[in-house]
Design a protein around this nucleic acid. Structure first.
Length: 783
RNA sequence: AGGCGCGUAGCUCAGGGGUAGAGCACUAGCUCGACACGCUAGGGGUCGGCGGUUCGAAACCGCCCGCGCCUACCA
C-alpha cells in the first residue's frame, strides 16, 4: 500500500459534503434495540420543529456528539435519540404572524383549519433544523426521529394526563395566573421573565367615607388597577391608621366604597403604609383578598383592555388607561405626588409582552409530591448533576415549587382530554374520547378547548420517545438514559420536570448524569437575540471556517461554570489547527511510500528514545482525553489534543522523523514510518470526536492495518480497528500496541535520554525554553 | 434580599500551593523538500484590592471593590 497524496490545503466544504451521507447510509449511528454491548443513551433536547439552528444548539449538540462518538468507539451500543418539539406558543406565534401578513387571523380560519395550517408549516420547515444538525455532524439515530405531537408521543401525553388526573395530581382552579395579553394564554410562573425597570410610585388620595376632608394616601406602581380595588390595607399595628380599620374609603373615579382592612402583609415602612388591594390583578392582593373575603373585580379583558367594570375607561388599553387615570386624578386633586421607583416587571418569554396577573380557571399539576422524589434522586446520587453547583439551584427550586399551570389557551398542542358535561357539570377525563358523560350519561358534553403546556410533553421525552407506555425493548435497554446534555436556562422548564415525570411513571431517574453547559453569548458577553442584532449564525461560521473548526472551538470554550463569549479569532485559530492536522497527515502520507503496516514484524522495530517518547506522550494524551471526557471537561480534552498534535507530534516528532526518513538507514526508516503511522492513526481517532469530517477524510487515505500487526510466530491481537470509527483506546482498555511496548500507564521506565524528553516537555509547558533546547535534544535523540 | 459565578498579557479565555499559559493582535527574521491557516526568535502580565494560612499563594481562607446571571410577593 502506498501513501496517497492529500491536497495542499484543507478545504472543509468538499470534505464535509461527502461524509455525512455515507455515515448515515452505512448505519454507523444506528442503535440496536438490544445488544450484547453495553448501552449508552442520550436523548436530544428537542429543538423547536420550525426553528433554525442557533449557537445554543450548536454547542449543545456538539457536546452530545462528542460523547456519542466517544462511547460508540469504546464499543457501546449507543442510542442518540433525536427529535423535535412542537413548541406550542412559539410555533403558533410564527404561523399567526404569517396569517397577519395575509391580513387574516386564526379566528377567521377556525381551529381546525388553523391547526392544519400549522402542520403544513411544520411540513415545509420542519426538516430544516434536522439538516442543520447533520451539517454539524450530529450522529443521531435518525431512523428513530420523534416529534412531540406524533401519534406515539401523543398517546404518552394522554396516558400521563389521565393517570395524574386519576391520582388526584391534576386539578382545576380559579385563581390568578400570569396572562399574556398578546398570546392570549396563561403562562406558568417560569414562563415569565422578570426585568428591572424604572417606574413610578403614584400616591393617590382615597377619601375616608363619613369624614369629609380626611384622606388615606395609597402608593401604587399600577394606578390603572385601582378600577378593581376592593379594599385598602394597613398594618394591624400601625398607629397612624388604627382607627381606620373597618371603616370605608371612597374609591376615586369609580366612586365605589371599599373597606379598610388590617393585614400583616403590609410593610409599614414602604410608601405611605397603606396599600390598595386589587385581588384580581395582583398576586399578593389575591392572598389578602382570600384572607378578608374580598371581591375579585376583574377590570381587563384577555387583551389587557379595560372592560365594563372599568366604567368610563372601558375600551382603553391598560397603559392608556393608566395615563388617563393619572391625569384624571390630578385634575380632581387626588394625586398627591409621584416618585421615581424601580420595579420589576414580568414579560412573556415568547413575545416579551408585559404579563398581567389575571383571574381565570386553569388546570394545574400538584407538583409537591413529584418534586419530593425528584429531589431524593439527586440527593442520593442516582442522578448526578455536573457541574455540582447546579444542584443547589435545582434543590432550591424544587423546595419552593408551586403548582404547575399546564393549560394554555392556544390551539397548537395536545388538547386536554377532558370533557365538560352541560347537563350535570361534571368532568370526564379518559383515554378514549367519550361519547357521553361518565357521571350522568348525558351526551351533551364538549371537550376542553385548552391545550397542554409544551413542557408537559417535553417532560416525558426520555421515555415517550422509547415507546412508552408500551414496554419496549428500547426502554429496557436505554432507560434510564446515560446522560442529558443541556443548558442551564431550561433546568426548571425541562430537566426538573423530566425528573419528576420519570420518577413517577418509570419509577427511576430519566438520566444518570445531567451535564449543564453554559450559554453562548456574543463577544461582548451579551445574550444573543434577534432584537439586539448580535446573533452569530452557526451556519455562517461553518461556511467560513468549516464544521470541524467550529466544533473544536465550541469544545475548547466549553469550560464548566462559565458562559461562552464567542470570539471569532478563536475559531480562526482552530481552523488553522485543522489545517495543521491536515498537513501533518499529508507529510506522513508522503513518507509512507512502500510502507504496509500489515507486513511489519514487531521485532523489526528499532525504537529510539524519540520514538518511545512520542508513543508515551500519545499514550498520556489518550489517558487525558479519556479522563477529562469522563468528567465532561471538554475544554481540557480539546487542549490536550491541540497541545499534543501541534507542540509534540508536529513540532518535535515530525522534525525528528525527517532525520531518519531521509537518512538512508532502511530499518530505521521502517520504524519511523511505523511510529508515524501509528501515532497519526491513533491521533485521528481521538480527534475524530471533535472534528469528525477531516479525520474521516484523512483516515480514508491512510494505510490500514486491517488484519493486524504481525508479531513473529503469531498474529498479534492488533487488528484493532476493523472499521473506521469503531474503536478508541482508553485507560480501561489500553492500546495493545502500547502494551507491547510496555509503555502503558507509566510501566515504561525512563531511561536517561527519555528523561531528557520528559524534562524538556515540562520546561516547554512552563516557559518558552523549548526551542533553545531543540537542537540539543535532536542531537541526543539521533545519536 | 438571598444564591451562584466571574475579575489572569492589548482582546477572547484556559490553568491552578512551587520558576506566569493558549489563540488572535504586535516586533524581528525566515520562499530550508507537511503547513505563510506556517517556522524561528522576541516584546508584553506585581494573575481585581487588602489581610491571613504556608518555607512558598495567582491558586487555599476571610473581608472589600467591580461585573454578570438565577431565584424572591415589598405595593
Amino acid at each position: 500500500m502506498s501513501g496517497r497524496e492529500l491536497a495542499k490545503g484543507y478545504e472543509p466544504h468538499e470534505v464535509e459534503k461527502r461524509w455525512y451521507a455515507e455515515w448515515e447510509e452505512k448505519g454507523y449511528f444506528r442503535a440496536a434495540a438490544s445488544s450484547e454491548k453495553k448501552p449508552y443513551s442520550i436523548v436530544i433536547p428537542p429543538p423547536n420543529v420550525t426553528g433554525a439552528l442557533h449557537m445554543g444548539h450548536a454547542l449543545n449538540n456538539t457536546l452530545q456528539d462528542i460523547l456519542c462518538r466517544w462511547k460508540r468507539m469504546q464499543g457501546y451500543n449507543v442510542l442518540w435519540m433525536p427529535g423535535t418539539d412542537h413548541a406550542g406558543i412559539a410555533t403558533q406565534n410564527v404561523v399567526e404572524r404569517q396569517l397577519f401578513a395575509e391580513k387574516k387571523d386564526r379566528h377567521e380560519l377556525g381551529r381546525e383549519a388553523f391547526i392544519e395550517r400549522v402542520w403544513q408549516w411544520k411540513a415545509e420547515s420542519g426538516g430544516q433544523i434536522i439538516g442543520q444538525l447533520k451539517r454539524l455532524g450530529a450522529s443521531c439515530d435518525w431512523e428513530r426521529e420523534r416529534f412531540t405531537m406524533d401519534e406515539g408521543l401523543s398517546k404518552a401525553v394522554r396516558t400521563v394526563f389521565v393517570k395524574l388526573y386519576e391520582d388526584g395530581l391534576i386539578y382545576r382552579d380559579n385563581r390568578l395566573i400570569n396572562w399574556c395579553p398578546r398570546c392570549h394564554t396563561a403562562l406558568s410562573d417560569i414562563e415569565v421573565e422578570h426585568e428591572e425597570k424604572k417606574g413610578h410610585l403614584w400616591h393617590i388620595r382615597y377619601p375616608v367615607v363619613g369624614e369629609p376632608g380626611r384622606f388615606v394616601v395609597v402608593a401604587t406602581t399600577r394606578p390603572e388597577t385601582m378600577l378593581g380595588d376592593s379594599a385598602v390595607a394597613v398594618h394591624p399595628e400601625d398607629e397612624r391608621y388604627g382607627d381606620l380599620i373597618g371603616k370605608k374609603v371612597l374609591l376615586p373615579l369609580v366612586n365605589r366604597e371599599i373597606i379598610v382592612v388590617a393585614d400583616d402583609y403590609v410593610d409599614r415602612e414602604f410608601g405611605t403604609g397603606v396599600v390598595k388591594i386589587t385581588p384580581a390583578h395582583d398576586f399578593n392582593d389575591f392572598e389578602v383578598g382570600v384572607r378578608h373575603d374580598l371581591d375579585r373585580i376583574n377590570v381587563f379583558d384577555e387583551s389587557g383592555v379595560v372592560n365594563a367594570a372599568g366604567r368610563q375607561y372601558e375600551g382603553l388599553d391598560r397603559f392608556a388607561a393608566r395615563v388617563r387615570i393619572v391625569a384624571d386624578l390630578e385634575s380632581i386633586g387626588l394625586l398627591e405626588k409621584v416618585d421615581e421607583h424601580g420595579m420589576s416587571t414580568g414579560g412573556c418569554y415568547r413575545c416579551k409582552t408585559v404579563v398581567e396577573p389575571y383571574l381565570s380557571l386553569q388546570w394545574y399539576v400538584k407538583v409537591a409530591p413529584l418534586a419530593e422524589k425528584a429531589m431524593e434522586a439527586v440527593k442520593d446520587g442516582r442522578t448526578r448533576i455536573v457541574p455540582k453547583q447546579w444542584e443547589n439551584t435545582y434543590f432550591d427550586w424544587m423546595e419552593n415549587i408551586r403548582d404547575w399551570c399546564i393549560s394554555r389557551q392556544i390551539w397548537w398542542g395536545h388538547r386536554i382530554p377532558a370533557w365538560f358535561c352541560d347537563h350535570c357539570g361534571e368532568i370526564t377525563v379518559s383515554m378514549e374520547d367519550p361519547a357521553d358523560c361518565a357521571q350522568c350519561g348525558s351526551d351533551e358534553i364538549r371537550q376542553e378547548t385548552d391545550v397542554l403546556d409544551t413542557w408537559f410533553s417535553s417532560a416525558l421525552w426520555p421515555f415517550s420517545t422509547m415507546g412508552w407506555p408500551d414496554q419496549t425493548e428500547e426502554l429496557r435497554s436505554f432507560y434510564p438514559t446515560s446522560c442529558l446534555v443541556t443548558g442551564f436556562d431550561i433546568l426548571f422548564f425541562w430537566v426538573a420536570r423530566m425528573m419528576m415525570m420519570g420518577m413517577h411513571f418509570m419509577g427511576d431517574v430519566p438520566f444518570r448524569d445531567v451535564y449543564i453547559h453554559a450559554l453562548v453569548r456574543d463577544a461582548a458577553g451579551q445574550k444573543m437575540s434577534k432584537s439586539k442584532g448580535n446573533v452569530i449564525d452557526p451556519l455562517t461560521v461553518i461556511d467560513q471556517y468549516g464544521t470541524d473548526a467550529f466544533r473544536f472551538t465550541l469544545a475548547a470554550f466549553a469550560a464548566q461554570g462559565r458562559d461562552i463569549k464567542l470570539a471569532e479569532e478563536r475559531i480562526a485559530g482552530y481552523r488553522n489547527f485543522c489545517n495543521k492536522v491536515w498537513n501533518a497527515a499529508r507529510f506522513t502520507l508522503m513518507n509512507l511510500e512502500g510502507f504496509d503496516p500489515e507486513s511489519m514484524e514487531f521485532d523489526e522495530l528499532q525504537l529510539t528514545e524519540g520514538d518511545r517518547w512520542i508513543l508515551h506522550r500519545l499514550n498520556e494524551t489518550i489517558k487525558t482525553v479519556d479522563e477529562t471526557l469522563t468528567d465532561y471537561r471538554y475544554n481540557e480534552s480539546a487542549m490536550a489534543l491541540y497541545q499534543f498534535t501541534w507542540s509534540e507530534f508536529c513540532d518535535w516528532y515530525l522534525e525528528l522523523a525527517k532525520q531518519d526518513l531521509y537518512g538512508g538507514d532502511a530499518e530505521r526508516k521502517k520504524t519511523v514510518q511505523y511510529v508515524l503511522w501509528h501515532s497519526l492513526e491513533t491521533l485521528l481517532r481521538l480527534l475524530h470526536l471533535f472534528m469528525p469530517f477531516i479525520t474521516e477524510e484523512i483516515w480514508q487515505v491512510l494505510p490500514k492495518a486491517g488484519s493486524g500487526f504481525g508479531v513473529r510466530g503469531r498474529k498479534a491481537k492488533h487488528h484493532l480497528y476493523p472499521s473506521c470509527w469503531r474503536s478508541i483506546p482508553n485507560s480501561a482498555n489500553p492500546d495493545p500496541f502500547l502494551k507491547l511496548l510496555q509503555i502503558w500507564s507509566g510501566s515504561w521506565r525512563l531511561s536517561p535520554v527519555s528523561a531528557i524528553f520528559e524534562e524538556r516537555w515540562r520546561c516547554h509547558r512552563r516557559s518558552r525554553l523549548l526551542s533553545s533546547f531543540h537542537a540539543a535534544v535532536m542531537r541526543a535523540c539521533i545519536s
